[in-house]
Computed example of a mutant assay.
Amino acid sequence: MSTDRYVSPLSERYASREMQYIFSPDKKFRTWRRLWIALAETEKELGLPITEEQIEELKEHADDINYEVAKEREKLVRHDVMSHVYAYGQQCPKAKGIIHLGATSCYVGDNTDIIIMAEALEIVRKKLVNVIAELAKFADEYKALPTLAFTHFQPAQPTTVGKRATLWMQEFMMDLEDLEYVKGSLK
């Protein structure tokens, strides 16, 4: 099974490889490990008895996730976070006792969700900005090309193709504003 991308019938048909990776197990569990490293570094700064050697050991294994160990452990404990704490500890015996020290499951779960959402929104934002830019070029190129406007799917007064494109752009601009608001309000 591939762990570097999110898999579903919809994602396989419609999502970019980049977006599939953001929602993949690899991204999720690597982010958990990055958060555990950040937690250990911060706890060390605050005076807890955590050594640089332990932190370096965590960093050495941040990306080589031992999925099979976590999977087997989850069968016993029925807890995804504790299964991955155990699996990480198997790779990092010196740091085993400090992984997830003082944290709740929400620390990695909720923060990872926010990180993933922020990264996914940034991909959508970039694509939206590109669509708006392309529509602006299109609108400018066809600003004088006459066409028939429609209202309620009925022919109406004359307009231009460029003018119609600006109306599409307006919709995308509202989407961009909403996206920027949501992205800016993530905690």
Rank of each mutant, 00 (worst) to 15 (best):
T42K: 08
I37P: 09
K71G: 02
E52Q: 11
W36L: 03
W36V: 05
E45M: 08
R34L: 06
A62C: 12
G47L: 13
E43C: 02
I37Q: 05
Y67M: 07
H79F: 11
E68K: 15
A62S: 07
R33Y: 04
P49Q: 12
H61K: 15
A38E: 15
L48S: 13
E53I: 04
S83D: 13
E41L: 06
L48R: 14
G47A: 13
L39N: 15
M82L: 14
E41D: 08
A38P: 09
E57K: 05
P49K: 09
R78K: 15
E60P: 00
L76G: 03
L58P: 06
T51I: 06
E57P: 02
W36T: 07
V69A: 15
N66M: 07
E45H: 01
R73G: 04
M82S: 07
E41K: 13
K75L: 12
L35W: 02
L46V: 01
H84K: 13
M82K: 13
R33F: 10
W32I: 07
Y86H: 14
E52C: 00
E56K: 00
R33C: 00
E43Q: 15
A70H: 09
E57D: 09
L39H: 06
E52W: 01
R34I: 07
I55F: 10
T31E: 04
E45K: 10
A38S: 14
E72C: 00
E68C: 01
R78S: 08
S83L: 10
T42F: 04
A40D: 09
D64N: 14
E68S: 08
V81P: 02
E72L: 14
A38F: 04
E43R: 15
K75V: 10
I55H: 10
A40F: 06
R33N: 09
V69W: 05
A38M: 13
R78F: 05
A40I: 06
E45L: 12
L76N: 06
L35H: 03
V81R: 03
H61D: 04
T31K: 05
E68V: 12
D63W: 08
L46R: 15
R33D: 05
N66H: 12
R33T: 09
M82P: 02
A38T: 08
R33M: 05
V85G: 04
V85A: 08
W36P: 03
A70F: 10
R73V: 13
E60Q: 15
K59E: 01
N66A: 13
Y86E: 10
R78N: 13
A38Y: 03
E74P: 09
I37F: 01
D80P: 06
W32Q: 08
D63R: 11
L39Y: 02
D64Y: 08
V77G: 07
A40M: 01
I50E: 09
I37G: 07
L76M: 12
E68W: 12
A40C: 13
I65K: 10
L35N: 01
L46Q: 15
